[in-house]
Nucleic acid binder design. Sequence first.
DNA 1: TATGAAAAGTAAACAGG
DNA 2: CCTGTTTACTTTTCATA
Lengths: 147, 147
Amino acid sequence: MEDLDRRIVALLASDGRLSFTDLAKETGLSVSAVHQRVRRLQERSAIKGYRAVVDHEAAGLPLTALVSITPFDASAPDDIPDRLRDIHQIVSCWSVAGEENYVLQVRVASPCELEELLARIRTAAAVTTRTTVVLSTPWEDRSPFTD
Amino acid sequence: MEDLDRRIVALLASDGRLSFTDLAKETGLSVSAVHQRVRRLQERSAIKGYRAVVDHEAAGLPLTALVSITPFDASAPDDIPDRLRDIHQIVSCWSVAGEENYVLQVRVASPCELEELLARIRTAAAVTTRTTVVLSTPWEDRSPFTD
DNA sequence: TATGAAAAGTAAACAGG
DNA sequence: CCTGTTTACTTTTCATA
C-alpha cells in the first residue's frame, strides 16, 4: 500500500466520518482524487467498513470477557469458528498459538447471561472454556496508526 | 437507554456511515428526529465516535497478539494504563480478574517488532509478560447488537 | 420530543488531461 | 492517476407544534 493510502486509512481509522473535503485538505489531494482512493481501498477491502464506537455500558452490555477454548477432541476437524459464528455475543474470534486453540471476546448484559453464553459455546463447539472477566477497560479498539 | 436509541445505536454500530435519511427510514422517525437523537447519543458519549474498519494485513500490521501482564511489585500503586497509554501498538487494554492483572491487544508489523514492543511494555510498566500470538482472525470487532 | 422546510455543505458521477 | 465541474443528496439549523 502506498504512503498516501496509508495516511488516508489512518485518518479514517481515527475518524470514520471525515468528509472527503477534510481528507483532501489533510492529504493535499483534490477531493476527487481522495474519493477515488477511498473507493479503491474499499473495493480492495483494505477498508472493510465503518462503525460507530459504542459505549457498551450505556448500550446495555456492560460485561466483557475473554474466553479461551480447547476442543474436547483434538483429532476432530476444526470447524469451531463456523459453529460459533451465529452467536452474536462473540464479537471477536482469534485462532491463537498457545495452550488453548481460540480466544473469544464476548459481550453480555450480566453474569447470568455470561453463564448461559458459556454453556452455549461449550455445546455448540464441543470445547472446554477458561474465562477471564474484564473488570474495566482503560481503552479499547484504538487505531494503531496514530504515531 | 430507550428502545429507539438502541435501534439507532445498533444500526450505526454495523454501518457507521448510514445517512440520517436511511436511519429515518429504518426507524420510522423523521430525519430531524433521528438527527437530534444521534446528536444526543454523541453528547452523552453513548456513541463515542466513528472509525473505519481496517484490514490490518493490507495496512502493514499483520501480526496481532494478546499480552497478559503482571506487575513485578504487587504492592506498588497501579498506574499501569497511564504508563502504557502512549504506546500506540496497544490497541486495547483490559483490566481483568484472573492470574494476570491486564490483557493487552497489540498490533505490529513483524515478530521482530513484537519483541521490541514487549521489551518496551516490560520496562514502561514494570511487568512480566505472557504473550499469545494470534494465528488467524475468523472475525473481529463485530457488533453484538445484531440479534 | 417531534415535525417540515430552507440553507449550507458533501458525495457521486463525469469529462478531460 | 490526477483535476475541476455539475447534479443530486445529505447535513444542519430554524421555526413550530
